[in-house]
Write a protein that binds this DNA or RNA. Structure first.
Lengths: 231, 231, 231, 231
DNA sequence: AATGAATGAGTCTTCATTCAT
DNA sequence: TATGAATGAAGACTCATTCAT
């Protein structure tokens, strides 16, 4: 009774667990069902097909991501630049703690590229276009962006970000930097074994450069750990 | 007789063409063979398996990428900052003109992340680890990086880049920014339909911010198109 | 309250509509329930299973067919030969207007063949043998036949049919001719596109030959449309 | 070496055997492969899918049927009416000895009905329309018909068939009678248990009536068994 | 009578890969 | 080198049917 989680969520949780451990392609719907403690058929009752399930998962990922954005924006006593710095770090944490959600977001971005290109649109699996979750995502994906743009605007207003920067473009730049960072982790770690660039040093350097790129005349209200560390 | 060696190339070219049109998963080895004008069996003579073929393709991608880096570095009359600006634009062109090669590089970066993580390493398809091309790639991937780092060092020396920046970290940052940019194209195009942020405006803004982040006291020797345009 | 019994009919009507549009195999019980405006479960309350439903439908088909036979036999002022001519035309109309009922009758005839053959009986889906409707059908199917035989007997008595014909065999022959005719419609229509044999010409010719086969010394009491037309 | 039957035929033979024993729907492709002594995959190498296999089987059925027609036509010393009588009996034998082939022909006739009707065409399984064998069948199905029409023409010429009959229509009538006959076997056998109409008596009666329907002034060159028996 | 969530057996089909020639 | 017939593991998905409520 009490512990009777909603089946839909049960399935999604099982999917996340298995995708994390084995990847999307290597996970069979039957395994998802088994892990969720239900029958295979019921999985198809709640999700039209594997793609639909993945789109539902992606939706959840965006919702969680939005929460991160919201928490960054709500933080008391932070100026715009500090918010963005915090946000980027949250994104990195998110990519580590919820790798499947994070990957699903990256996958969705690739999807968007195809979706917005007339030549590539046909490459998209029709089952994805069929999914109701996919269409909800088209809207949902904009929400984190809106919050991010607010942070930049806030930073310009409070003087922590250069006034000549255009908020939309600036936010997209920050967002894409965060995404690019994650891609480099492998090579950095690999090479770091023999060079001086440790992942930690790189992260500090990366944030610092980003802040330099953005910052206006007003200094941070309080010294930030990242800013303090030299590299 | 003499020119027999290019069967290998024939296969690779066929693979690129098909992966471009349909994606990796949707392309069957039989199709590759047919497109290359040879038999299915022969494909397996030259490449151990589909993964091996893909690793060979990735190797070629890195070689081409390295050429782009080299061309940027060799350009006469450019200071370090200009080289990096040029490089980033080359990378973007590369992602558009050789989408399969570009995607194979991104895929390899993901692979590197798993490869360098003890927990994730087991997720890598064993056939990949078997591939001789994969192991060559482990070395090869460092080459573009080395060239990029030289550009930063050059920029510091010629004053176009801030002297306090650490070359390795700075290059990685630029490199990851270029990668992140490409990821955002879909959303930007999608949202651009109703907002003021066109893909072109964003690209200009992105480059400008990157340059602001890097630039030292010395101005560009000649005005650059990108710098000139406001956003 | 009073009229509750018609849920059964509701289901049957829904089944007929869907079978007509999509065929038996392509129609799911869930669709039938939805079309009938009731729940899936209730369908199984009224009909044990899909086969049982189909047998019930077949029973209804035989009842309607019997009505056609009865109407033919009851017609005033017609001699036996005219009755049979009329009957054959009714059967053809029936096959066009109630294709599902008609097909269910053909299906039942195939079933009978298996049912009466010791070797083939095992091929019959056990659910069919379980159906109470099937067993009712074993009796019901004889009724149209009885009426048809009466027509032949009547024709012999009134001189419109050759006296040396054996009524049972003659009726079965007429009945099977009517069935065979319908099977040929596809090929005739297909080939008719390039030949002189239109479906209409064929129908007229078919009836004429049948009448020639049956007719005795007494001519039709009134000229019949079919007899009048040459072919 | 010697006993190495062509694989395509091996598969077809296995399919016939299994369809005969269990029916089309109840036979799995895997069983066909096993029975043929090959792997499941090879079945799909030779036949695109189950429908394609069935269409190939139907093609073979029409070829065998055509042989029956040809043999009837070639028979020395027979007039047209005798040929048709012989043909009908061959068809009946065929339906008993090659029930799967026979049923596949009936199935094809149903298919033709849908194929030639704009409203019903969409009900046809797309895999069937895809099958190359289906399209060959559209031509092939006409061949037996052509031979049958020749028989009627021959009968008219030699005086064994009424001269006023139109060959095409007459043949189609005979052909459809043969088909209808087979449909009645079940009911006749069932009812025959308690009535005087045995299957044998019916067959004799049926043929006699058909001959009466067709026959011209010239008597059979030699007495035929069927004609001799009273009913 | 009535509901609809839940079950799970059943099957087609794909395709990377091998191997006899 | 080169072929292409042959293999067989793997997995998504359907739908008739049941049953707790």
């Amino acid at each position: 009774m009490a512990g009777e989680k909603n089946k839909e969520k049960l399935i999604l949780d099982a999917a996340v667990a298995l995708f994390t451990a084995q990847g999307f392609a290597a996970t069979r719907m039957e395994d998802v069902a088994k892990k969720a403690g239900i029958s295979k058929g019921l999985t198809y009752f709640y999700y039209k097909n594997k793609e639909d399930l993945f789109m539902a998962l992606t939706k959840k990922a965006f919702e969680q991501l939005k929460d991160e954005f919201r928490d960054s924006l709500r933080a008391k006593g932070k100026n715009g630049l500090e918010m963005l710095t915090d946000l980027v770090q949250r994104i990195w944490s998110f990519s580590k703690e919820q790798p499947v959600y994070y990957q699903s977001i990256l996958h969705f971005l690739d999807l968007m590229k195809k979706y917005t290109s007339p030549e590539l649109k046909s490459q998209i699996n029709p089952l994805i276009l069929d999914s109701i979750h996919f269409h909800k995502l088209l809207e949902l994906q904009l929400e984190p962006t809106r919050l991010g743009i607010q942070m930049v605007s806030q930073g310009i207003k409070d003087g922590s970000i250069r006034p000549e920067l255009q908020p939309e473009i600036t936010f997209y730049t920050v967002w894409s930097m965060a995404l690019g960072y994650e891609k480099m982790e492998g090579p950095i770690t690999f090479e770091g074994k023999e060079t001086k660039v440790s992942p930690e040093a790189w992260q500090r350097g990366y944030l610092k450069m980003m802040q330099d790129m953005l910052k206006g005349t007003i200094q941070a209200t309080k010294p930030q750990a990242v800013q303090a560390s030299l590299f």
